[in-house]
């Protein structure tokens, strides 16, 4: 039980995928202009990431490992992630057409979210068990959604700030993300 709490705290705060490991920066910068969109994107990514880390665990341990094909894991994981994203896309299209429209191109782009592949690869590198893998993916997605949502609320405010022209838009967003990542260093040593 304690292990699980440690994994969650570690992935959400201490080793936050966006602000500490710098994975998944593309949707972090791209979908953070509006709070509602960010919440939708956070939900979709959580769904995909958890499912993808479970599936990639199964693929790795029951297909690749017995056949001695571990060197294929990167390409196999990319395939698994693409399938899971396609599944999530269909799922969201049926359950929430509005969110589907709002997310638009960013939904298929979860495929190229390096955090998803990063979680799958780290799971095998750290030799996580099934539950640990699922929780690691879930925690990573929670950490991603957490900072994405907070960041989007802040960017709504930055949009009306009197930012110097050369720093408008993505530039000031990057600087804000950098300052946030400094603040997240305060969590180091928690677990």
């Amino acid at each position: 039980m304690t292990d699980f709490v440690v994994i969650l705290i570690s992935t959400i705060l201490v080793n936050n995928f966006v602000l500490v490991q710098f994975l998944g920066l593309c949707p972090f910068m791209g979908v953070s202009n509006k709070l509602e969109t960010a919440i939708g994107m956070g939900g979709a990514t959580t769904f995909v990431l958890t499912l993808a880390s479970i599936c990639s665990y199964l693929v790795h341990n029951f297909i690749l490992a017995p056949l001695g094909l571990e060197y294929l894991k990167t390409i196999a994981f990319i395939l698994v992630i693409a399938v899971v994203v396609q599944f999530a896309k269909m799922f969201i299209e049926k359950t929430s057409p509005l969110l589907y429209r709002v997310l638009g191109v960013f939904l298929p782009l979860i495929t190229t979210n390096c955090a998803v592949l990063g979680v799958a690869l780290q799971n095998t590198a750290k030799a996580h068990t099934f539950t640990e893998s699922a929780l690691y993916g879930f925690g990573a997605a929670l950490g991603f959604s957490f900072v994405l949502i907070l960041f989007s609320a802040m960017r709504e405010r930055l949009a009306v700030a009197d930012v110097p022209v050369p720093f408008k838009g993505a530039a000031i967003g990057m600087i804000t993300a950098g300052l946030m990542s400094l603040a997240f260093m305060g969590f180091s040593g928690l677990v």
Binding site: L150, A153, M154, L179, L182, A183, F184, G186, F187, S188
Partner: peptide, 24 residues
């Protein structure tokens, strides 16, 4: 952060982190 983290004092980190959360 004071009790379980690496840094002995944490006011600066805590304030920055909550600044980040303030618009939300």
């Amino acid at each position: 952060i004071r009790v379980w983290g690496n840094y002995p004092d944490a006011v600066a980190f805590a304030v920055l982190l909550m600044n980040f959360a303030a618009p939300f």
